[in-house]
């Protein structure tokens, strides 16, 4: 997938998810903001109630999207025969799209009425989504290849060297600047023994890096370096500092990612189990 195609691919997901949310929210705001005891008397009730024409559709569609999103990603990730179908990164993005948009639809399917056993499914879904966002963050904190494969330490070192060489040779920066860029990661992020402390450090890493890189850019411009060149230098420097920083918390991120897995998946399973019970109950009682 070319970068452009990937960009369109991601943008499309983003647009669909956001527009779905906005359209459903705007369309049903009057209904959803009505107290539960008043909703049955709303004109929209027959459509937007969980068993309504649209509400029921949203429940089914959202469930399917989550089911497909989870199962497809899991299969692609775990079934060797499917390894050849696309990059794992793209499947993850598809998984994220379906498992964000699907819950949005399910959210509106619930009509913001959370109760009974199915609420366990809903809140599990919520936990899965939120943990997914957290997992995605942790995921991004671990250096990866273009295809999304995790880099081992050797590959990371080589990448760090490549970036240092690029700064030296391509931009012909003097040693002082090179040293300063190398020291930025240490300035920004100090090693800690706490996994969770490192998680929060990771949350602020990008901001801090951006601040330092901006200052670097100012210094470069003061040295009469052309702005376009300064931007290229800063871009490479940012990549280098980020990588240096992530290397420092890599161990913690690996640990967190393990924890995340044992958190994310059970909630997903819980969600699906309860959802199935909910579907069975609906079929039996035909609410």
């Amino acid at each position: 997938m070319s970068p452009l195609t990937h960009r369109i691919y991601i943008t499309l997901f983003f647009v669909i998810a956001i527009s779905s949310f906005l359209l459903l929210a705007i369309n049903g705001f009057g209904y959803y903001s009505t107290p539960l005891t008043e909703r049955p008397f709303s004109d929209l009730h027959s459509a937007l109630k969980p068993s309504g024409t649209l509400g029921h559709f949203l429940g089914i569609a959202g469930s399917i999207m989550m089911g497909v999103g989870v199962s497809s990603y899991m299969l692609r990730k775990r079934v060797r025969a499917l390894f050849k179908f696309g990059t794992l990164k793209n499947w993850l993005e598809f998984h994220i799209f379906l498992c964000v948009t699907g819950p949005v639809l399910v959210l509106f399917h619930t009509a913001f009425k959370f109760g009974g056993i199915v609420s366990i499914s809903f809140w599990s879904m919520t936990a899965v989504v939120l943990s997914g966002i957290a997992g995605r963050f942790i995921y991004t904190q671990i250096p990866r290849s273009v295809k999304g494969n995790e880099l081992d330490i050797t590959e990371i070192k080589r990448l760090q060297n490549e970036l240092s060489e690029k700064l030296k040779e391509d931009y012909n920066l003097d040693e002082k600047v090179i040293d300063k860029i190398d020291s930025l990661s240490s300035k920004i992020l100090t090693q800690s023994n706490s996994t969770f402390t490192d998680f929060f450090k990771a949350l602020g890493l990008k901001l801090k890096v951006n601040g330092e890189i901006n200052r670097l850019k100012t210094e470069l411009l003061q040295k009469q370096i052309p702005e376009s060149l300064a931007i290229q230098i800063c871009s490479t420097a940012k990549e280098k500092v980020m990588l240096d920083g992530r290397v420092k918390i890599l161990k913690s991120m690996h640990a967190l990612f393990r924890y995340w897995h044992i958190f994310h998946l059970p909630f997903a399973i819980t969600m699906f189990v309860i959802m199935i019970i909910h579907i069975i109950a609906v079929l039996i009682f035909s609410f």
């Binding site: 969980p50 009425k113 109760g115 009974g116 056993i117 199915v118 366990i120 809140w123 897995h261 044992i262 958190f263 998946l265 059970p266 909630f267 399973i269 819980t270 189990v273 019970i277 109950a281 009682f285 609410f287």
Partner: peptide, 25 residues
């Protein structure tokens, strides 16, 4: 994972005083 999942599910269910309420909409 299974232990944790079972723990979570048990905890969630234990908050429900009546099984009925799990099914009642």
């Amino acid at each position: 994972n299974l232990y944790l999942w079972s723990l979570i599910l048990s905890l969630v269910l234990s908050f429900q005083t009546e099984l009925y309420s799990q099914f009642s909409p």
